[in-house]
Design a protein around this nucleic acid. Structure first.
Lengths: 121, 121
DNA sequence: TGTAAATTACGCACTATTTTGTAACCAGGA
DNA sequence: TCCTGGTTACAAAATAGTGCGTAATTTACA
């Protein structure tokens, strides 16, 4: 997933939203402003470094806003931008879709079954 | 992005949709049934291995349907399932969001500017 | 007539590339 | 010395690409 210029909006959103963390961070920031350390606590399996990287990615994409206060110890706040807020329901819609997709959905064993059909043919 | 069981639908959708290819494949399959080789031609930068892997992932997720015909040369068709069809507009919505997010969006240089602010403090 | 070659949708092993984690370091005041 | 929010260098892990093999039938050609 290198720097392939794509001009396709869908490819571009996915470049930002792909991976475990972006949507999770959105989720936590829905509730309002959070500090770096809050987000660290919220998901302990996310490494310090990755948190910093992902936050910056979201910031550059205009989804979250970073506010740094002068002074020590350091203090930095993160919250959703206007467009970040608009994104949240779209993500939720995906979650909703996943939940009631169960009806017409295929059990994980199907792949093998299909394969066997081909082999037998 | 290992096999972390999550029970959160959003995390689960993203596990399937993350990466460059899933949404692209959806996009090509919108137009109807395609064969493996069609999809290969549609995006030449996708290796046959990845194509096979991604297709299977989408199949197991119940988004696409795989139909293998007996006989040689081999022939396999792929098309969207009912729930796959329902997913398409949601993805499109993300694309739409990306396009008109420009207004309240931050230019890529901002990160540096912010950093300088912090440093100066 | 006999045979070699092409065809399709992959699987597999091996390598290359990318992403992620770990740990250490920084700043300057309490 | 600790605090916070990073950054950097190095290591480990995950992900992606390359190229060969394969199956049964048709076509190509000497």
């Amino acid at each position: 997933m290198k720097d392939v210029v794509s001009n396709c909006p869908i490819e571009e959103v996915m470049r930002v939203l792909s991976g475990r963390w972006p949507t999770l961070l959105l989720y936590y920031l829905k509730d309002g402003t959070k500090r770096f350390s809050d987000l660290q606590r919220d998901n302990p399996t996310l490494s310090h470094r990755m948190l910093a990287l992902e936050l910056r990615k979201l910031e550059v994409a205009g989804i979250i806003r970073r506010t740094a206060y002068p002074g020590y110890p350091l203090r930095v706040d993160y919250d959703l931008t206007a467009s970040g807020l608009k994104l949240v329901p779209l993500i939720d819609a995906l979650g909703g879709w996943w939940e009631d997709r169960a009806g017409d959905h295929v059990d994980p064993a199907k792949a093998k079954i299909q394969k066997r059909l081909v082999d037998a043919a």
